[in-house]
Design a protein around this nucleic acid. Structure first.
Lengths: 367, 367
DNA sequence: ATCCAAAAATGAAAGGTTTCAATCAAGCTC
DNA sequence: GAGCTTGATTGAAACCTTTCATTTTTGGAT
């Protein structure tokens, strides 16, 4: 039996795609008119418009984004490639992006690179093939060649929560050096002398900057920046934070810090967890300052002092810069730098405990 | 000097898109051959292939996904519309989806509906226009009409972390009734009599099911299901958890529960936070069981007993079902139900304190 | 040399939408 | 009612890739 020749477009459900052509036929108008109803409703008479709209509803017409894009040359999507989908900081940034994009009637593709370079590259390649309008990215490596190639080939890229030397890209970041400085100044003011830094890997610029800020604070107050005890972690996760706690606990009493600045809140929460479970009192035995001020920071058993970043604003601004870049001719890249803010909570309150087990290093004049 | 006519495709950067045509010209071959190099490399001779590949690299050729898709009729993307981007549970499910998709060489569009119906609808519409290969969704309302219309029009939909009467969709879920039951049985076994439930809104099926399971456990052990004190929340967030804590604290001692089952971990963490800050000891004064076993549960100041769901597996299975549906002809929808597992930690250990009374909960009860 | 089969390369058509110059209709003015 | 103007509609071309039926080339066998 000769079945009807099956088009290669046939859906599994035996469904033919309804196109503008079908709508036009059903409504008794031309292709162009249907397109006008969709894109320039004001130029088409009310009567015709209603007829066309009715036909669309009848047939269940769904615009084909690929075809439009192919013809129009620009997609209505932008993408955010984030470093760590499990870190609430980034999901908050994503929210800010989504809001700005929604206002501009764009969709957002969220992609999680999981801090893996090959996955980041794979997503970037795909997104470029999709001809997204632009890409927002918190890169694993802000100096990756692809980040230069994409804009060269026509896909604008905005760097989020990082900066990059030069003005080759728009970027939105928070002054992480200042953030680190604020954290340390706070601890120093509270009388801490032996201060640790928990964070890593140093391949992350965020970690480097925050450390740098911490050292700057030490130098600015006449201390030796090298005295900052750095417990380096392999990632910015709760798990690594707990491990850092064990390492700190293993230090000889004399050198064990009385306060620790963690490069992000996940680490701080992990460290806090370790402290509570091993009976180290926070902040009496160990003061802790985190970074990011994620929601879980305030909700921690010992509410966490943290360096707050304008997360949503970060995302929204990045999205706006990207939109500007796609619309403006003769666009000049802009580097926006936000200022972080220290939010003091319980975990860092009060002076260090100057007990027998933790004698001060000198009879000195602590803050 | 007449300027060359500027194509409407011209990029802002003065960039012309490089297409197969340009590659073909540069390599001195036909269009078809370039396409063969891309799609059927084995049919083209090694020499030609290398020449074409060189030309591609030279010109910076990037495949146009829209054009491919338009011609080929199927996209290489699928999407996951999730309920709450700020809840680590869903980002973990998303990870599972991403892994399965990566294995099938597909991209994943993550969309955050934020539990808002209109945003969910807007994303679904967009995704349908994009002709994604299929949609995974944890719906705000699993009975929304659009969820039926999409498959009718050719976009398969798999429901994640929810079920739906009938077999109109594939779905992957965890037995939330059983989960609620496990939580309550655990508390009952530990000797608790006055048990509360914190969760809401009841419009969320997850909450309804978990509550139902809790009631079933009470009934099964000869108790009155109606005795379950339900503190209803407006959302499943940390903030709501803290508020629920305040409401619990306001209850008269005689009726105040000695144990609480929270409908998810965010609520449990918020409640825990409230307890710690007001001096209520967990688990001695109040035992807490959460749900989801997110990473922060184990890391909480009082490690949280929780009902674990196979989050990644949930996502991966859903993605696999979707792929099956797109590939099989005569597909039969499948409803997969996973079994949850109780993970006992400190927050629920030990019997209720049968002291003189419950300790004063917070010095100044407001009002 | 000739022929043939297999391998390789070709090029026109198709896919759904948008654009735009061109056409058509209707309403006004003198 | 002729000549205009404005408003509405039309239809072919273009966007870029893939497909597939043809054509061309290659290399081995006769």
């Amino acid at each position: 039996m000769g079945g009807a020749p099956v088009s290669d477009q046939e859906q599994a459900g035996g469904h033919r795609q309804v196109g503008v052509k079908d709508v036009a036929a059903a409504a008794g108008v031309s292709l162009g008119t249907v397109s006008n109803v969709l894109n320039r409703p004001q130029v088409v008479s009310a009567r015709t418009r209603l007829r066309v709209e009715a036909a669309m509803a009848d047939l269940g017409f769904v615009r084909n984004e690929s075809a439009r894009h192919l013809r129009a040359g620009r997609s209505s999507t932008l993408a955010y490639v984030l470093l760590d989908g499990a870190n609430p900081f980034f999901t908050d940034v994503a929210q800010g992006i989504e809001e700005a994009a929604e206002a501009a009637d764009l969709s957002v593709f969220l992609c999680n690179s999981d801090n893996r370079a090959e996955r980041e590259l794979s997503y970037l390649t795909r997104l470029e093939q999709h001809r997204v309008q632009g890409i927002l990215i918190t890169p694993a490596d802000p100096h990756a060649a692809i980040l230069d190639e994409l804009p060269q080939r026509g896909t604008p890229v905005v760097i989020v929560d990082r900066t990059r030397g030069g003005d080759t890209h728009c970027s939105v970041a928070v002054d992480d050096v200042l953030g680190g400085e604020l954290a340390l100044l706070h601890l120093i003011e509270n009388g801490h002398d032996r201060i640790g830094l928990v964070g890593g890997p140093l391949s992350l610029g965020q970690v480097r900057d925050r450390k740098h800020g911490a050292e700057r604070a030490l130098a600015a107050t006449g201390r030796d920046p090298a005295a900052l005890l750095h417990v380096e972690t392999a990632a910015l996760t709760v798990h690594e934070g707990r491990q850092a706690g064990q390492r700190l606990a293993g230090l000889p009493t004399a050198t064990r810090p009385t306060a620790v600045f963690c490069a992000n809140d996940l680490l701080a929460l992990g460290l806090l967890q370790h402290c509570v479970s091993t009976g180290i009192r926070v902040p009496e035995d160990l003061a802790i300052v985190g970074y990011d001020d994620i929601e879980f920071a305030a909700a921690a058993a010992v509410p966490l002092t943290s360096v707050r970043q304008p997360r949503r604003k970060l995302g929204a601004t990045a999205a706006e810069l990207l939109l500007r870049e796609t619309r403006e001719t003769g666009h000049v890249h802009e580097q926006v730098l936000f200022t972080p803010e220290l939010v003091v909570r319980t975990s860092s309150q009060g002076p260090p405990r100057r007990g027998i087990t933790n004698p001060p290093m000198g009879a000195g004049s602590a803050g």
